[in-house]
Design a protein around this nucleic acid. Structure first.
Length: 294
DNA sequence: GAGTCGTGGAC
DNA sequence: TGTCCAAGACT
């Protein structure tokens, strides 16, 4: 079956979004470019439900980039809590510093300026420019990629990495005017997050089911390389996570007894401590103790 | 371009 | 129960 027409897709998805969009703090009337930016960094590889409480605490405490920039990186890491990938907290802090230094404390509106900030890649720069500033950008996150793969290309999952053809498809579907393009971006993301989900899509509730190329093809199963899962038990990531949890929860520094109890394998433990220090997530203090950077 | 980097909920 | 996966970035 041919790919659905852009006009039909737009109408169906935008109408659905108008009725089904979640009310999220970074979408509210009091959202700021900074609150949008904080949400985007937190949402990288992290579900909305877990971001909500941390985002609220962060914006209460650091309502502007300058407020965060004035803090220690260790405090940012501590307040990141258990969101995961704590280097994002460092990058957000570094981005706040850069915003103060280069942009007079205001989150920049241009894609290029955003892309130059730490922790901001193509997706995040496009998302901030689109959601916070109402600009027209291709916003290709995992949700949008899956929606387009199914509805337009007729396959269950997109390729591992973004392809040229995929970006061309998304570009061709982008509405012409800024405001509609921005709503289209958030609407397709929402559709992927709530309806066109990875494992059990709710096609019965999908506004584009009648237009969907994957559905009309009979839901062919994924035909690419196996999507490998992420190993966890016994990995450096697990070890680093344990060590960071110790440091976050400590009043001051953490001593060797706690550290050795947290991870028994010595060479791996030492390697991870070294990598955490290299990342700027930990510092070594006197007496073989470790702490969040002050 | 493939590996690495946390965490926890859902099924 | 173990597997999958969640608004990616960086090297």
């Amino acid at each position: 079956m041919d790919a659905p027409s852009p006009g039909a897709l737009h109408e169906a998805v935008l109408a659905w979004y108008d009725d089904h969009a979640r009310e999220l703090p970074w979408r509210g009337v009091d959202a700021t470019p900074w609150s949008v930016m904080v949400s985007e960094l937190m949402l990288q590889q992290t579900p909305v439900a877990r971001v909500l409480p941390v985002h609220a605490v962060w914006l209460e405490r650091w309502p502007t980039p300058a407020d965060l920039a004035a803090e220690s990186t260790g405090e940012a890491v501590r307040m990141w809590g258990r969101l995961g990938y704590p280097r994002r907290a460092l990058r957000l802090h570094a981005a706040a510093v850069a915003i103060v230094e280069r942009h007079r404390g205001e989150v920049p509106a241009s894609y290029d300026d955003l892309l130059a900030l730490p922790g901001v890649g193509d997706y995040t720069a496009s998302a901030i420019a689109s959601f916070a500033f109402g600009q027209r950008h291709v916003v290709l996150d995992t949700n949008v990629r899956r929606v387009l793969a199914r509805a337009v290309s007729g396959v269950e999952f997109p390729a591992t990495a973004v392809t040229r053809a995929e970006r061309d498809t998304a570009t061709a579907l982008l509405p012409d005017d800024d405001a509609t393009a921005a709503t289209w971006a958030v609407a397709t993301m929402e559709l992927g997050a709530l309806v066109c989900t990875a494992r059990q899509p709710s096609c019965d509730a999908c506004p584009v089911a009648e237009l969907c190329a994957w559905r009309s093809a009979g839901f062919p199963a994924h035909d690419g390389p196996p999507r490998r899962g992420q190993a966890w038990a016994g990995t450096d990531r697990q070890c680093r996570g344990r060590l960071m949890a110790l440091a976050r929860e400590a009043e001051g520094s953490v001593g060797p007894t706690s550290i050795e109890a947290a991870w028994a394998v010595e060479d791996q433990r030492e390697r991870c401590l070294a990598s955490l220090i290299a990342d700027g997530l930990l510092v070594r203090v006197d007496g073989g103790r470790y702490a969040l950077p002050s």
